[in-house]
Simulated assay, not measured.
Amino acid sequence: MNDTWLFQIRISVSAELAASLRDDPTCTVHDPLHDVMRRHNASVKCQFDAFADYVSEAQRLGTEKYPLYQWTKDTIENPEKKAKYLQSFTVYVDGKEVYGKDIADLLQAELSALIGNAGIRSVIRFDTNPANNPQPPARGQ
């Protein structure tokens, strides 16, 4: 893999833990998770909230500048997808949603060790390589 790609870690959690984490991005409600976040100057943001923020910003500034506007709006308005994304959290490091391989490797390992611990269900790793990620739909589709 190209060394220029950046990475993102997401965690999936129970509905109960998700409700707490949405108001507590440093994860103080979950001691082991909070310890990982503190060690890496990290925090979490609910994917649903991030999507809702994107839609709101697009509506304020002009949806034509936001290629994923319609997809994102449709996603947050779909009850099944809303339930899924309310339980999915992106890990931000130093306030950034993507970061280098070394930190991603550490986070993935440390967070994976917490799976099954009080509501942590899974850890997923993404990269910025366009070949591995869906691209915005063409206009008019």
Rank of each mutant, 00 (worst) to 15 (best):
G119K: 08
I103S: 05
L114H: 11
V98L: 00
F48V: 02
I76V: 14
P67V: 14
K73D: 08
D74C: 01
G100H: 09
V44I: 13
L106K: 15
K73N: 13
Q108K: 09
I76L: 13
K65F: 12
A113P: 00
N117P: 00
A52K: 11
Y92I: 08
N41T: 10
K65M: 05
K84A: 08
A118L: 06
K81M: 09
P32S: 13
G100N: 13
A113V: 03
V36M: 06
W71I: 14
V91Y: 08
G116M: 02
P67E: 13
E80F: 08
E110D: 13
Y92N: 08
V55Y: 07
K73G: 05
V93P: 03
R38W: 10
N117C: 12
E64H: 15
N78C: 12
Q59S: 10
K65C: 03
S112Y: 00
Y85M: 04
V93E: 04
E64W: 09
L33M: 03
A52T: 09
D35Q: 12
E57T: 11
L111S: 01
D74F: 01
K81R: 09
L61Q: 15
S43H: 06
T75C: 14
L86M: 12
K65R: 15
Y66N: 04
Y92S: 10
K82N: 00
A58D: 02
I115W: 00
K65H: 13
N41H: 06
